[in-house]
Amino acid sequence: MTSILFRFVANAVALAAAVWLVGDITLGDDDTSTGGRTATLLVVALIFGLVNLVVKPIVKVLSLPLLVLSLGLFTLVINALMLMLTSALAGDAFEVDGFWPAVLGGLIISIVSWTVNMVLDSD
């Protein structure tokens, strides 16, 4: 149970970092209060976690030949597609404007999420 909570927190922090660092990734503008933005971020983190739990493994298995041929670099494209799918599912609450911002955002999310998981999950 705590592992799921750690991953959820890591996803939320990583998404916040991507929104902050990449100009073409935005969080909903309808509520500018800190509490409203935090709630929106938590909902988007939940959607992102579900996308990564359900869709990403299927896409990775189907793209296994490309992953092998690219020595794993195709994972960047898969991460970008998962971020764009999250944007489509979240509607106006979370928007990614284009493929290249999604690639950069996916890279940032991977690095920040890995770092946060390492810090939170240390024994």
Rank of each mutant, 00 (worst) to 15 (best):
M1G: 13
T2N: 14
L5V: 15
F6L: 12
F6Q: 14
V9I: 15
A10D: 11
A14D: 10
L15T: 07
A18D: 13
W20K: 13
W20T: 13
L21P: 08
L21S: 10
I25T: 02
I25L: 03
L27W: 01
D30N: 01
D30E: 05
D30W: 00
T32E: 06
S33L: 03
T34G: 07
T34F: 11
T34M: 08
G35F: 05
R37P: 03
A39P: 02
L41E: 04
L42Y: 06
V43F: 08
V43N: 03
L50V: 15
L50S: 14
N52A: 12
N52F: 10
V54Q: 10
V54E: 10
V55N: 07
K56T: 12
K56C: 03
K56D: 04
P57C: 11
V61M: 14
S63D: 08
P65C: 12
L66P: 03
L66M: 11
L69G: 02
G72W: 08
L73V: 08
V77E: 09
I78T: 07
I78C: 06
N79S: 08
A80F: 03
L81M: 09
L81P: 00
L81A: 13
M82I: 00
M84V: 04
L85E: 01
T86E: 05
S87T: 01
L89I: 06
A90L: 06
A90S: 15
A90P: 02
D92I: 02
V96C: 03
V96L: 05
G98E: 09
G98A: 06
P101D: 01
P101L: 00
P101I: 00
L107Y: 00
I108C: 03
I109V: 15
I109W: 07
S110Y: 13
I111G: 05
I111Q: 04
V112Y: 09
V112T: 11
S113A: 15
W114C: 03
W114V: 03
T115A: 14
T115Y: 11
N117W: 08
N117S: 13
M118G: 10
L120Q: 14
S122A: 15
S122P: 06
S122F: 15
D123N: 14
